[in-house]
Design a protein around this nucleic acid. Structure first.
Lengths: 262, 262
DNA sequence: GAGTGGTCTAGACCACTGT
DNA sequence: CAGTGGTCTAGACCACTCC
């Protein structure tokens, strides 16, 4: 086993044993760790790099290396979909009170900052296949970012797609200044006569790309959860596809599957 | 911007542009890349390290650096739960035909290798809280590993917990040699008079720990999906808790949420 | 044995943080 | 300004793969 691996293992064990508390500062790379392990700086840095990639240690330039604290999780349930459907036909004033994200997080509208960008795009192979339309079909792409008032990085980056010719029936849906729309997408669809029958969510996880790390403000040692939400109406037609990128260290997804009784 | 970041960006762009195909070999670190970018070996290696952490490049000792190929996904749906429940009361011979994993993957029993280890453990704070029992209560811990016949690394590592005093009603359930049990856990529970009402699944994603990377055979640049499945019976009691670790590059989870009609 | 990546050294110099 | 981490060099030597 390489020297840097031995050092990484030793530090990991000492961290798990509580020698330094979460948020606590490790000894300095030079001269403390190089002295303690009797090795050169690059070897110490390689060991710390392993721990940073695992999400055990946070490296902070100019300050030191710290034991990472667990993040507070934002929980997102699949019951939000039925909840949103139940509200889709309620009055405007009732719908204004809360949205689905606030429902999940327990936060109020004022804690959250929200931005929306809309544009017309042509369906690529992938989206065309999911919607069951021809590639090149006009889609409305809506990009949403949600973040806490106090934090600078968003915790949710979402690309939503709708078939342009379907949504243009209500011109308000083409205007980003109407966002955040009270009642969410299901109410928007209701205004053009669409009722959802079910929602399929496809999930994978992977390390962030360079762009995602930048945009979501992710440190080393954090994964992203990639969620594709496909909304299907009562006629069996795919009416919305939404690709959501969530930071793995701040997000817990909960899915409840009810079972038929014997 | 640092030199190694510029090199990483340049290589990423060239890879995305298709200069080297998936599975293709990049130029050698020495002398090709050091010569091309006119820099020292450690700098080149740092740039390649970034791409390896993103899962873009596979480093293979003694052979070279390769553009990573996308992995074939194993799909796991939440419809498997109802499917398994429907089969729980069928005859032994029918149940023997296939299990839930084969149902999801489309593979047959002979393609998969399966191992099970059982032991009695005491509930820690966490598990005691989920089961709603006192910490220290006796639990049956069952550890399962599933892998392809041809691959050496499992694609699924699962720790399942049951309350010992509940399952001991059927001594066969305490014996690992009865695994894989035809009909799965829901049939096992049926033999002791338990019917499930719903299943809650909690999901997060993070980089693998050193142990998980070892056990699941994960390369750099792969995340794990951590799934806690909680099974609740018709009396509202938690009867099974299962912690499943899945490799992010080989797993897609699909959850379908049906909605009530207006 | 040739080719290629992995580890490690010793040290210079830059950049960021907080006093 | 002192303390600390980040980048980079030039080169030695080891370990793995494949012919």
């Amino acid at each position: 086993m390489a020297k840097y691996e031995k050092i990484a293992d030793d530090l990991r064990i000492r961290i798990r044993a509580g020698e330094w508390l979460p948020g606590g500062k490790l000894p300095s790379e030079t001269p403390d760790l190089t002295g303690h392990y009797k090795t050169s700086l690059p070897t110490i840095r390689q060991a710390l790099g392993v721990l940073a990639a695992e999400g055990v240690v946070d490296k902070v330039h100019g300050r030191g290396n710290f034991v990472r604290k667990p993040r507070k999780l934002v929980v997102r349930t699949n019951q939000r979909h039925q909840w949103e459907k139940d509200r889709a036909r309620l009055s405007d004033t009732t719908r204004r009170e809360t949205g689905a994200t606030e429902h999940d997080t327990g936060l109020t509208v004022s804690d959250l900052v929200f931005s929306a960008d809309f544009q017309k795009v042509e369906a690529n192979e992938d989206l065309a296949h999911v919607f069951g339309v021809a590639p090149g079909t006009q889609l409305l792409e809506r990009i949403y970012r949600t973040r806490y008032q106090e934090e600078d990085a968003p915790f949710n980056l979402s690309h939503s797609y709708l078939v342009y010719d379907v949504v243009k029936a209500n011109p308000e849906l083409l205007d980003p200044s109407t966002e955040p729309w009270p009642g969410g997408t299901q109410n928007q669809l209701f205004t053009i006569g669409i009722e959802l029958d079910r929602i399929d969510e496809h999930l994978t996880a992977r390390p962030p790309t360079a762009e995602e790390a930048e945009e979501l403000g992710l440190r080393a040692g954090v994964s992203v959860i990639v969620l594709r939400k496909v909304s299907i109406d009562t006629g069996g037609r795919v009416v919305e596809v939404s690709d959501v990128t969530l930071p793995g260290d701040r997000t817990e997804l909960v899915f409840t599957t009810p079972l038929n009784r014997w």
